[in-house]
Design a protein around this nucleic acid. Structure first.
Length: 293
DNA sequence: CACTTGACCTGTCCGC
DNA sequence: TGCGGACAGGTCAAGT
């Protein structure tokens, strides 16, 4: 579910809402895979610890604790982290929501309690996500952290670094290459399709067939769509909400994603198609993004 | 080795 | 209305 802009939106909310708070308790719900499935001693390193920082690397959230441990979370497709300030209800304060949602619900995997009475809920309908407790010093050694590519929104990450990295995947399709987290971090299906439409590249084009100039344009478009999405609070298709339970509005501004059957913004008489590339649903304008040959 | 496909789960939507 | 199958924003492991 959440890609880089969604995780970054959650991170900003958490930084505002829970930094400085102290953990007083926790509860695990019908979970075999997620926290506290860890070797760390939960009571010793979680209870009594305060939140010192909330960071993000790629699509992974890092909640640093004063105990020297870090809660590491990947939301995968349907994960949510929601802070509830009082009671267990969220959604009621937002005009877009017509109902009040009570937590925990049948998707809740974990709950953390803070001494001020607020709570953190980790929900995940499809159970692909996870939350684990690691010593903070070991976080850089986690397998995923070792392999993951550069942060695309860093100013220092330019086409000079991007082009050689993506050329290591010259044999595959350009969409598969930008979804590869070892090439660059944080691109998922939404921003892959939006970036490729922006750069006017057909997603099934082999990387070796794409010029350096076109790859440079692609990186810029990926940066642009991600920055716009962060500004809009991310993309809500179905599940995604931020740390306060609010939906994101980026998809209103999307050009092709989930817009099959509608017309291309550049070509009012051309209908957006949905095809399959790299095993993923893929949205294109066949005039903007012609298949080479 | 490089690349592609299937598996992990649960819910929803679409066609018969 | 019921039922089977495809599909859903991510990442691994296993297969070619």
């Amino acid at each position: 579910m959440p890609e880089l802009p969604e995780v970054e939106t959650i991170r900003r909310g958490l930084a505002r809402l829970i930094v400085g708070k102290t953990i007083s308790g926790s509860e695990n719900y019908n979970s075999t895979k997620s926290f506290p499935n860890t070797t760390a001693d939960v009571e010793q390193f979680l209870y009594g610890a305060s939140v010192t920082d909330v960071r993000r690397r790629a699509k992974v959230l890092l909640i640093d604790l004063s105990s020297g441990y870090t809660l590491v979370t990947h939301l995968k497709m349907t994960g949510q982290i929601i802070i509830v300030e009082g009671g267990d209800r969220w959604g009621g304060g937002h005009p877009s929501d017509s109902f009040i949602h009570t937590l925990p619900d049948n998707t809740t995997r974990e709950r953390l309690d803070f001494t001020d009475g607020s709570r953190l809920y980790f929900n995940d309908l499809r159970k692909f996500g996870w939350m684990k407790l690691y010593p903070s010093l070991e976080v850089p050694n986690i397998d995923f952290m070792q392999k993951v590519g550069p942060e695309p929104l860093e100013d220092t990450f330019t086409s000079k670094e991007f082009i050689p990295r993506i050329r290591r995947r010259n044999g595959t399709t350009v969409k598969a290459a930008i979804l590869d987290q070892t090439v660059l971090a944080g691109v998922g299906n939404i921003y892959a399709d939006e970036g490729l439409w922006g750069a006017k590249i057909h997603p099934a084009t082999r990387v070796r067939e794409v010029s350096d100039a076109a790859l440079a344009e692609l990186l810029q478009r990926i940066k642009d769509v991600m920055n716009l999405s962060i500004e809009k609070g991310g993309s809500t298709d179905k599940n995604y909400v931020d740390a306060e339970g609010k939906k994101g509005s980026y998809l209103k501004f999307a050009n092709v994603f989930r817009r099959e059957g509608q017309t291309c913004p550049r070509h009012p008489d051309v209908v957006i198609e949905k095809i399959r590339v790299a095993g993923r649903g893929t949205h294109i304008c066949s005039v903007c993004q012609p298949m080479p040959q």
